[in-house]
């Protein structure tokens, strides 16, 4: 190798990318040629200069990029995962969130994860996101890094016939943190109690919801289904245990829609134990209408 050939080979030599034989030749030449050794030094300094000229993004850029990416991927995973995850997370949220700590309604929460784009629902402009802290860690630069899960609230519109709308309402009807949301959701669902899922949700609310307004609304929703076996089976329990007289009165009205022998005993028992005079009066008048003896046990 002469000097020109060696100078051409220096760059690849420094990167260790010369074939072994060429590498040996370069080294042999360098050994005996001070001018080429100087050129090698210069090339090495250039490499260091390249290293120092490396452009480094500002430290918080990666966190911003992550935030945007995770928001985008969490907002549109595959359809099946989306649904599964939506329900799972909602359940987790019930457990973790103290009641009323975060005014994040189930509809808003789920809408970020459900395939609204595919469902043909109209979307209004998004509201600012609600953030939940996922993890925190010290930053090498001495600061702190915090990962936020941001939930963007969105208003969606659609018919009650829409399966997705119904699912969202059913979920909202179980949102333990927000009784107002449960009442509104049940009010919207109450004309659809012929649907099995809706009826189950209404029954669940009527018998177990801790808010009397919600129980009453749910029971109203079941009025049209008073003769359905599941509804009928639930009424005696409501009459015995519900501490709200309006709920009990409504339950009586629903019970007597189908006047059969079985309810007489139940009503007669109620006359004896019902503490609310209006409810007692109501029970008596029903029994009289049924021509049953008030005092018979």
């Amino acid at each position: 190798m002469n000097c020109t050939e060696v100078l051409d080979a220096l760059a690849l030599y420094l990167y260790g990318e010369l074939p072994p034989r060429a590498e040996e030749e370069v080294e042999a030449h360098l050994h005996g040629c001070p001018a080429c050794r100087d050129a090698l030094d210069a090339q090495q300094r250039l490499h260091h200069a390249f290293d120092r000229a490396r452009a480094v993004p500002r430290p918080d850029l990666v966190a911003e990029c992550r935030g945007e990416l995770f928001r985008r991927t969490a907002a549109r995973p595959g359809w099946r995962q989306r649904l599964a995850r939506a329900w799972d997370l909602t359940r987790v949220r019930w457990v973790l969130r103290p009641a009323g700590a975060l005014a994040l309604v189930a509809v808003g929460f789920l809408s970020a994860r459900l395939p609204l784009r595919d469902s043909g629902l109209l979307r209004a402009p998004a509201e600012p996101p609600v953030a939940t802290v996922r993890w925190v860690e010290p930053d090498p630069s001495g600061g702190v890094r915090i990962a936020l899960d941001e939930t963007r609230r969105r208003v969606i519109r659609g018919s009650l016939e829409d399966r997705l709308i119904e699912k969202l309402l059913l979920e909202a009807a179980r949102d333990q943190a927000n009784a107002g949301l449960r009442v509104e959701s049940i009010d919207l669902l109450k004309d659809r109690s012929g649907n099995d899922d809706v009826r189950q949700a209404l029954l669940q609310a009527a018998t177990h919801d801790r808010n009397p307004g919600v129980r009453l609304k749910a029971l109203e929703g079941l009025k049209g289904m008073a003769s359905h076996p599941e509804v009928r089976a639930a009424l005696p329990g409501i009459l015995e245990r519900d501490d709200n007289e309006n709920v009990r009165i409504l339950a009586i009205d629903m019970l007597v829609q189908n006047r059969d022998e079985q309810i007489v005993g139940l009503l007669q028992g109620l006359v004896g134990q019902e503490e609310n005079s209006y409810v007692r009066m109501r029970v008596r008048s029903v029994l009289e209408e049924m021509k049953a003896s008030v005092g018979t046990f």
Binding site: R54, A55, P57, L61, V62, L69, R72, T73
Partner: peptide
């Protein structure tokens, strides 16, 4: 992602382009 962003930023020397590459690559 730190390495990906570092490479895109050093190569493109533009924050916006590096951001775009980051997003598109991981998407």
């Amino acid at each position: 992602d730190q390495n990906v962003l570092g490479m895109a930023f050093n190569l493109l020397r533009c924050e916006e382009d590096a951001r775009d590459v980051y997003q598109e690559a991981f998407l």
